[in-house]
C-alpha cells in the first residue's frame, strides 16, 4: 500500500501442492488469499503430460473450519500439453467440519479426464480473520480477565525491525486490530483482537521495545489450540 492507504492482507507465495510426477503430468501450485471478506484458493494448473487434460473438478475433505468450494473449478477450455492456467476458486466457510492435525490442514481431491489425484495443503489461519474482528475495549478487558491463564501462550517473534505503529498498521491489513496501546518502561504494549469465521475470538498482547528486534506476543483464546496457527500469522505478516 502507498502512503495513507491501508495495506492488504498477507498472501503467502504460491507453492507446489501437487507435483506432476505424482499426478500423471498435472502440476498444481497455489496459495490462499482473502480480499474484501472473500477467501479464494488461487491455483496454477500446468499440463506436463503429453495429452490434453479436460473435465476438471475439485473436492475438499472435511476440515477444521468448514472450508468448502463455493462453486465449481472453472477450467473452461481443455489444457494442452505444456499449457498453464490460473484459476481462482472462491471458498465458503460453511462446509462440514472435522478437526484436522495440524488445524489448518486441507485435504483436496482434484479430478480430470485422466484420474483423481489427492494432495494436502495448509492455509494461513489469517485467511479466517474477519473484517469485524475489532472487539469493544470494555469487552476486551472483561474477556482478557475471564480467560484462564492456562489458555495463554507466549511466543517470540525474532528479528523484526518495525516500530509498534508500523506493526499495528501491517497487522490491521490482515484483520488483526489494535484496541489499545500503552507504553510501560520503554515497552509499547499493543492490545489486539481478531475473530475467526467460526466466531472464535483471539486476544493478543504484543510487546515491542525500542531497539530490540525481538517482539513478544501473548495470545489468549478460549480455544487455545488455535494459538500456534495465529502466532504463525503474526510472524508471516510482520516479516513480509
Amino acid at each position: 500500500g502507498g502512503v495513507g492507504l491501508p495495506m492488504g492482507a498477507y498472501t503467502p507465495p504460491k507453492t507446489i501442492w501437487l507435483p506432476a510426477m505424482k499426478a500423471k503430468g498435472l502440476e498444481i501450485s497455489g496459495t490462499f488469499v482473502r480480499r474484501a471478506g472473500v477467501i479464494q484458493m488461487e491455483m496454477t494448473l500446468t499440463n506436463k503430460a503429453m495429452s490434453v487434460m479436460t473435465d476438471f473438478a475439485i473436492q475438499f475433505n472435511r476440515n477444521s473450519f468448514g472450508l468448502a468450494p463455493a462453486g465449481p473449478l472453472q477450467v473452461l477450455t481443455p489444457l494442452s500439453p505444456n499449457q498453464s492456467i490460473e484459476v481462482a476458486l472462491p471458498l465458503s466457510t460453511v462446509g462440514p467440519v472435522m478437526k484436522m492435525e495440524p488445524l489448518n490442514n486441507l485435504q483436496v481431491a482434484v479430478k480430470n479426464n485422466i484420474d483423481v489425484f489427492y494432495f494436502s495443503c495448509q492455509y494461513p489461519i489469517s485467511m479466517l480473520f474477519v473484517e469485524d474482528g475489532k472487539m469493544e475495549r470494555q469487552v476486551f478487558l472483561a474477556t482478557w480477565k475471564d480467560i484462564p491463564n492456562d489458555n495463554e501462550s507466549q511466543f517470540q517473534i525474532k528479528d523484526c525491525h518495525l516500530n509498534s505503529d508500523a506493526a499495528s498498521n501491517k497487522l490491521q491489513g490482515s484483520n488483526i486490530f489494535t484496541i489499545a496501546k500503552r507504553t510501560v518502561e520503554g515497552q509499547d504494549m499493543l492490545y489486539q483482537s481478531m475473530k475467526l469465521t467460526n466466531s472464535i475470538w483471539v486476544l493478543a498482547e504484543l510487546r515491542v521495545q525500542a531497539g530490540n528486534p525481538n517482539y513478544t506476543v501473548c495470545l489468549k483464546c478460549r480455544a487455545a489450540e488455535v494459538s500456534q496457527g495465529v502466532f504463525q500469522c503474526y510472524e508471516a505478516v510482520l516479516k513480509n
Binding site: R137, L141, A180, R182, V184, Q187, M189, Y191, E205, C218
Partner: peptide, 20 residues
C-alpha cells in the same frame, strides 16, 4: 484519549503484565 476510564484500565493491565 478519554473514554470512561478504559484507557486507565488498559494502563493498569499493561503495568501488571510488565511487573507481575
Amino acid at each position: 484519549e478519554i473514554e470512561d476510564g478504559l484507557d486507565e484500565a488498559f494502563g493498569r493491565l499493561a503495568v501488571s503484565r510488565t511487573n507481575p
